[in-house]
């Protein structure tokens, strides 16, 4: 008998890992990425490459400068890069994309302590930084390659007159918009994959989208068009469900998702912004700690009156 390991229970662990979860997210984004390349051509592929590479490289440098353990192996930086790229218009200057990627990793993620510590979603915060810094470049949406004329500025369905696009066009993504947000089918496929792999619970996307549909119907808009256009699906499935910035409790997720939906509709309807998804998720991210503390479940056997 040479030596025995002695450690605290449990001695058995599930096979899941952070890396595997992030890999699942990347896999789930493949249909949307493929759709963006199909619709917007090689520029989409180039921008995805630029964002993913810049995010991973920046995180690598950051961890060295901060003298922390290397974390690029957990693939979370790659996920941030991919999601950011899908939130950009295909016409964007790659230098701007690089700026956004660096901002996401350095300012939003690593300065707050890295994975699990950032209080807003890095990709989304970066998109907002770019929206505010480069409003024209960030809204230079073009029509897809199949719309007849190539690379002509085109309004997204959000900014266009109602009825410009058919449901089928909205569903399959043959319209203007950010690279990854146009093809609803690809995004829904990715969401189904994530739920099936138990990476995310369906609560946030379903409640978020449901709230948006109901509220926009109440306010006299076409709910189907509201759901299928703009960044709602991309935001609800891939960004609002970010572990770090969404509530950890079951009812917290519901409150958070309802909040996201209400904010989205209000911004879309009453604000002078074409799109409300990013800002509504950002605001709810900031509220997450508060939501969590009011939705903490009552522990097993806790007395009703006893607040010891």
């Amino acid at each position: 008998m040479s030596k025995l390991f002695v450690s605290s229970s449990p001695h058995l662990r599930a096979t899941s890992s952070t890396r595997r979860i992030m890999l699942d997210v990347i896999i789930s984004l493949l249909p949307a990425s493929a759709a963006s390349v199909v619709f917007f051509g090689w520029r989409a592929l180039m921008l995805i490459g630029v964002c993913v590479f810049t995010c991973v490289f920046t995180e690598y440098i950051c961890r060295i400068v901060m003298k922390r353990s290397q974390t690029i192996g957990d693939l979370s930086a790659a996920v941030t890069g991919l999601i950011l790229a899908l939130n950009l218009p295909s016409t964007l200057n790659p230098l701007i994309a690089i700026f956004g990627s660096v901002a996401a990793i350095v300012v939003v993620k690593q300065m707050f302590g890295g994975i699990g510590m950032n209080f807003v979603n890095p990709a989304m915060a970066a998109r907002i930084i770019l929206m505010v810094s480069f409003p024209t470049a960030m809204t230079n949406w073009v029509n897809t390659q199949f719309a007849g004329v190539d690379a002509v500025s085109s309004a997204t369905p959000m900014a266009a007159e109602a009825g410009t696009y058919s449901y089928m066009e909205l569903l399959f993504g043959n319209h203007g918009g950010s690279m990854g947000e146009t093809c609803a089918v690809a995004l829904i496929l990715g969401g189904i994959y994530l739920v099936a792999r138990r990476v995310i619970s369906p609560v946030i996307p379903v409640v978020y989208i449901g709230t948006t549909a109901v509220l926009s119907f109440v306010l006299g808009q076409n709910p189907v068009q509201q759901v299928l256009s703009g960044g709602l699906l991309l935001g609800a499935v891939f960004m609002a469900t970010d572990y770090t910035t969404s509530p950890i409790t079951k009812w917290g997720k519901v409150v958070y998702a309802v909040g996201c939906g209400v904010m989205t509709v209000l911004i879309r309807t009453y604000a002078e912004l074409p799109e409300g998804v990013s800002f509504s998720i950002l605001l709810m991210n900031i509220l997450t700690p508060l939501i969590e503390s009011i939705t903490t479940p009552k522990p097993f056997g806790a007395s009703k009156e006893g607040k010891k």
Partner: peptide, 24 residues
């Protein structure tokens, strides 16, 4: 028997949904 190294919490919430005592 080999121990796995702990990495940063990613706040996935799996511990919360696994707790039979409804703790966080």
């Amino acid at each position: 028997a080999r121990l796995t190294e702990a990495t940063d919490c990613i706040r996935c919430g799996r511990c919360v949904s696994a707790c039979p005592m409804r703790l966080v």
